[in-house]
Computed example of a mutant assay.
Amino acid sequence: MSQTRPVYSTEHGRLCPGCGQPINACQCRKGPAPTGDGIVRVRRETGGRGGKTVTTATGFLLDDEQLKQLAAELKRRCGTGGAVKDRVVEIQGDHRELLKAELEKRGFTVKLAGG
């Protein structure tokens, strides 16, 4: 007979496959798993930024540490500053085409979003 763990409890709901604790009390994961369809959407934004243009990329299925590392590499590639806020990579300036080419080279599925 195989050793299996339950994945759902009527008392606690979903259980973590790693530690067997309820998802809310899981000790083996640092944060919620990234969700989405796996398509990275790159768009240009100016609203609420004092007229400054910022290129944003969303939809990465990476953990927080990998996302920060990728953002640092993309900022270096574009030669500009930026940040990661709420799992959204922000790069200063209009770099949609450059980001699209770089992310596709790294194996991501990329769509240009917005106008």
Score class of each variant (00 low, 15 high):
Thr109Met: 03
Gly36Ile: 10
Val89Trp: 06
Leu70Asp: 11
Cys19Trp: 00
Leu62His: 08
Arg76Ala: 10
Cys78His: 10
Asp37His: 11
Glu104Cys: 01
Ala72Lys: 04
Val84Lys: 05
Glu65Trp: 08
Ala72Asp: 10
Leu67His: 05
Glu97Gln: 12
Gly47His: 06
Ala71Gln: 02
Ala33Tyr: 00
Gln92Cys: 07
Ala33Pro: 05
Val54Ser: 04
Cys28Pro: 04
Cys28Tyr: 11
Ser9Arg: 13
Ala83Asn: 14
Ala72Phe: 11
Glu90Leu: 08
Leu61Ile: 07
Ala101Leu: 11
Ile23Leu: 00
Ala57Gln: 04
Gln21Asn: 04
Gly36Asn: 09
Thr55Arg: 00
Glu102Ile: 08
Ala72Arg: 06
Gly115Cys: 03
Gly59Glu: 04
Gly107Glu: 10
Pro22Asn: 02
Thr53Arg: 15
His12Leu: 11
Val88Gln: 13
Thr58Trp: 05
Arg106His: 09
Glu11Asn: 15
Gly59Arg: 03
Lys52Met: 11
Gly81Ile: 02
Ala57Glu: 00
Asp86Lys: 06
Lys75Phe: 08
Lys68Thr: 08
Asp63Gln: 07
Phe60Cys: 07
Met1Trp: 12
Pro34Val: 06
Val89Gly: 01
Cys16Gln: 04
Asp94Met: 09
Val84Ile: 01
Ser9Asp: 13
Leu112Tyr: 05
Gly50Tyr: 10
Val7Trp: 06
Asp64Ile: 02
Thr58Glu: 07
Phe60Arg: 01
Gly114Leu: 11
Arg29Phe: 13
His12Gln: 12
Gln92Thr: 14
Thr35Gly: 12
Val7Met: 00
Glu104Val: 13
Thr46Pro: 08
Gly114Asp: 13
Gly51Cys: 07
His95Trp: 10
Ile91Glu: 03
Cys78Ala: 14
Val89Asp: 04
Leu103Gln: 09
Leu98Asp: 02
Lys100Ser: 02
Pro32Cys: 08
Arg96Ile: 11
Leu62Trp: 04
Met1Ile: 14
Leu103Ala: 08
Gly115Val: 05
Glu90Ala: 03
Pro17Trp: 01
Gly82Arg: 00
Pro6Asp: 09
Ser9Tyr: 08
Lys68Ser: 13
Lys100Ile: 07
Glu45Gln: 15
Lys75His: 02
His95Ile: 12
Asp64Gly: 03
Glu11Gly: 15
Asp37Pro: 14
Leu112Asn: 01
Gly51Lys: 00
Glu90Cys: 03
Gly20Gln: 09
Glu73Thr: 10
Pro32Ala: 10
Val40Arg: 04
Gly51Trp: 02
Gly81Arg: 05
Pro34Ser: 09
Cys19Glu: 06
Lys68Met: 12
Ala72Thr: 01
Asp37Leu: 10
Val54Tyr: 10
Gln66Ser: 13
Val88Tyr: 04
Glu11Thr: 15
Leu98Arg: 14
Asp64Phe: 00
Gln69Leu: 14
Ile39Arg: 08
Gly18Tyr: 01
Gly48Asn: 02
Gly107Met: 09
Glu90Tyr: 03
Asp64Tyr: 03
Ala57Ile: 00
Lys68Trp: 11
Glu11His: 15
Arg44Trp: 01
Leu99His: 13
Ile23Val: 00
Lys75Ala: 03
Gln66His: 08
Ala113Lys: 14
Pro34Asn: 02
Gly38Gln: 07
Tyr8Phe: 15
Lys105Val: 11
Cys19Val: 07
